[in-house]
Amino acid sequence: MEFSTEDKGSYTEVSATGRLNMVAAPRLREIVGDVVSAGGKRIVVNLAGTSFMDSSGLGALIGCLKLARQSGGDLRIAAAQPQVTMVLELTSMHRVLTPHRTPEEAFAGE
């Protein structure tokens, strides 16, 4: 899985391309941890290129959400593909991590 981060002005976008599984999950935690340490408050994880997510990946997203909120910020997800949406809904985690259609919409109007 490839990660990239980009400062979008009002938020930091973390793009995750590939499979968010037990191999990639610890790296997502590191990357979001770095963004939070650098003072990033609003984080959007762009899942447009995430073809697969398992419970490890979901656990990492929840951990990243906690980290962002503990530092007074928030983390949102966008552009979830069908398999990711299935996992979120199956586990009811879409209530905590509600997918936004696009990264731009995740914090729009706030």
Partner: peptide, 18 residues
């Protein structure tokens, strides 16, 4: 799977049960 608690706390990260 645990339902998002009403009190606003976040679910556990532990993924083995999930």
């Amino acid at each position: 799977a645990e339902v998002f608690p009403e009190d606003g706390t976040l679910p556990h990260e532990d993924e083995s049960g999930r």
